[in-house]
């Protein structure tokens, strides 16, 4: 473990004597490691779900509502749900669904939001007003109401859900990118590029966008965490991924009716959602801290 010894100063009024030494130990980032391990485990399971020795998440594997660990068989180690399906299998296949939907929504939202933000922050004037109006309009709609409306108008499906979640992320990314673009556009190297006759497109995409991406990237884990909660909320309301596909939100919704006699149906997916959101928020925070330090020092 590295130890930095700081120079000491005597506090005002302190009595003279042997100088005290204050040490600052660089703490090991256990939180970051645990969060990273959880996310990696989840992503690994989601990607490898087809080759893992898991039951079909749509088919029954035994009696309904078997409690966890009543059997150590992989299919039933976390018990079965109301319809006799493996909870473990549905949690892992649900992870695939949730991560796929939220990653896609985040990616689409980031691309669209960044383009809009760049347009507003770089072009300014009419573009800024138009984009700001659009963003304000989207932000004025309560997110869950917007999602329910979309899921009601369009038939619930993976793509409908992805579309709805994308709409939720666009304003946040657009605002972030707009602010960054406004800031970077005034930097000397941008002014220099202008003076050399670089085109607006070149400046936007070669000078401003790459530099502002750092800010956007640090925001991604937090957005994904929020989207997982939003997906869960929709699933809970019966407007998420259509059955029999597994998702954490629909698992919680399906298990709600049996909460008194089979709480594991709700607690297992709820715990997974909790840990995943916590891990993503921790990751986002740590990544932001590190990138900000690097940005300041570098």
């Amino acid at each position: 473990m590295s130890t930095d010894v700081l120079p000491t100063t005597r506090p005002a009024g302190a009595s003279a004597g042997k100088p005290r030494t204050y040490t600052l130990r660089a703490r090991r980032p256990y939180g970051l490691w645990i969060a990273s391990a959880w996310v990696l485990l989840l992503v690994g399971c989601a990607v490898a779900a087809d080759v893992l020795p898991l039951a079909d998440p749509a088919k029954p594997v035994g009696r309904a509502r078997q409690v966890p660990f009543h059997s150590l068989a992989p299919d039933q180690i976390l018990g079965t749900d109301t319809y006799g399906r493996s909870v473990l299998s549905r949690v892992i296949f649900g992870a695939r669904t949730d991560l796929l939907v939220t990653l896609c929504a985040c990616a689409f939202g980031a691309v669209l939001g960044c383009l809009l933000g760049l347009l507003a922050g770089f072009v300014k004037g009419w573009a800024d007003r138009a984009v700001s109006f659009l963003i304000d309009t989207l932000l004025a709609l309560p997110p869950i109401i917007l999602l329910i409306a979309i899921a009601t108008i369009l038939r619930p499906s993976t793509w409908t859900l992805t579309f709805g979640l994308t709409l939720l992320t666009v304003p946040a990314f657009a605002r972030l990118e707009r602010g960054a673009a406004l800031s970077w556009a005034e930097r000397p190297f941008v002014l220099a590029a202008r003076s050399y006759g670089a085109s607006g497109l070149r400046i936007a995409f070669r000078q401003i966008l790459p530099n502002s991406l750092l800010t956007v990237i640090t925001f991604v884990p937090t957005v994904i965490a929020g989207l997982i909660v939003a997906e869960g909320s929709l699933g809970f309301l019966g407007l998420g991924i259509p059955p029999p596909a597994a998702s954490w939100g629909t698992m919680i919704a399906d298990g709600r009716a049996s909460l008194r006699i089979a709480p594991h149906e709700v607690l297992v997916p709820a715990a997974v959602v909790f840990l995943t959101v916590l891990a993503l928020n921790t990751l986002g925070e740590k990544v932001r801290d590190r990138l900000e330090i690097r940005s300041r020092t570098g």
């Binding site: 088919k59 029954p60 319809y83 006799g84 059955p243 029999p244 399906d254």
Partner: peptide, 14 residues
């Protein structure tokens, strides 16, 4: 009925 429909779906999946 929604729960019932899912149960039908699950049984027919076999």
């Amino acid at each position: 009925s929604a729960s019932y429909a899912k149960a039908i779906q699950t049984q027919l999946s076999t």
